[in-house]
Amino acid sequence: MKLLLTGANGFVGQYVQAALPGVPLPAGLDLRAALDAAIAKIQPDTVIHLAAQSFVPASFENPRETFDINFYGTLNLLEALQSNAFKGRMLFVGSGDTYGRVPEADLPVREDHPLRPRNPYAVSKVAAEALCYQWSQTSSFEIVMARPFNHIGPGQSPRFAITDFARQVTEIRLGQHAPLLQVGDIDVTRDFTDVRDVVRAYTLLLEKGRNGGIYNVCSGREHSIRDLLQRLIALAGVEARIERDHARLRPAEQRRMVASFEALHRDTGWQPLIPMEQSLQDLLNDWEKQLQ
């Protein structure tokens, strides 16, 4: 089975490549460009569509570019697959951010919860997911859709809070930084899944997900950001003062978040296997290698 992987060079894409060696689109080929020739050359049997503009602040700065990449790039890909008589399965990777603000009474959030996107990135993912659902019903190939929540794991960009904390803690442990941790709003909760478990979910969805089916990819566990920071400090064996940096504060309207992976488990048997302690330790080990 030949797998076409978009977004192969991203954080998750690299883990997909390690687990399911796939063929990336040619280097430098933009999803917004004509893709017919590339698809004709690859002739894939399956597709995982990861490529996206996924940084929320950038989506506010340039919503049109975000929509061009995430919606029209997806449409371009679908049309290129169709024109090359693709008959396999595609996994579209959306986002748990599409739910928007979820009342605490509705947690854990399930796939039938209304979508109320609150930023241009989430809007683009809602639109692209709707497009993929339509194509799953009317085209010659099948499409399964994933809504992943927060990821964690080695190799993630320090633009993300837990990875940034792991970097700061490691710098303190190596004597490269004063024992002071700069943080934003850490008194919120989020649902984190190890990236390796996420990739395993994608593999199973490609194989066993229902055509037109939409699946949360999440741990089903609610983690306090403050608690994860304190666990990183304990694992590294350091002492550090925590200081709120106002430059890092973003308005977190969603104080608590946890989702349900019941549908994913029902259709594929998937459940998260990697404990949070291992994810955090692997993050610290990865930063130690990078910073030494």
Rank of each mutant, 00 (worst) to 15 (best):
A52Q: 00
P272T: 07
H177M: 15
R256T: 14
L235T: 01
A130G: 14
F149W: 12
T203R: 13
A27R: 13
R226G: 02
G209M: 02
L229H: 05
R250Y: 10
I242P: 09
D191P: 08
S139Y: 08
V123P: 01
W270C: 10
P114V: 12
C132Q: 07
G100R: 04
D112Y: 01
R255M: 10
D36V: 05
K41E: 15
Y72C: 00
V12K: 03
R159L: 13
A247T: 13
F60N: 00
Q156D: 13
S59H: 08
G153D: 07
A34G: 01
H151Y: 15
C218D: 04
Q254Y: 07
Y15H: 15
N76Q: 07
I172M: 11
G237A: 04
E243Q: 15
D45L: 09
N84D: 10
R226A: 15
I214K: 06
F160T: 08
S124P: 08
V238W: 13
F11S: 05
E111M: 05
D286L: 04
G100H: 05
P44R: 11
R248D: 07
P57N: 09
P120E: 10
S95V: 05
P21C: 12
L291F: 06
F165M: 14
W287Y: 15
S124R: 08
R231T: 11
Y202K: 02
Y133V: 15
K41Y: 05
R244I: 13
L180F: 00
A34K: 14
T163I: 00
Y15P: 00
M145P: 00
E253W: 12
L181G: 03
R110Q: 14
L228Q: 13
T46H: 15
I42Y: 06
G73P: 00
Y72Q: 08
L204K: 10
F60E: 00
H265S: 15
R89A: 09
N285C: 04
R226Q: 14
R118Q: 14
Y133C: 10
I39Y: 09
R190N: 09
A128P: 03
V238C: 04
R64E: 14
D194V: 07
H113N: 09
A240M: 10
R221Y: 01
I69C: 08
A240G: 05
P275R: 11
M276A: 05
Q281M: 11
A127T: 14
E253Q: 12
Q14M: 09
R231M: 07
L50K: 01
E262S: 14
P120V: 11
R147H: 10
L249K: 12
E222T: 02
E243M: 06
G269R: 07
A52P: 02
L115N: 00
R210G: 01
K289S: 12
R147A: 07
F60L: 03
M1P: 08
Q137N: 01
V188T: 15
R167T: 03
V102W: 03
L205K: 07
R196Y: 05
H113T: 04
D187F: 11
L4V: 02
A33Y: 01
R64S: 13
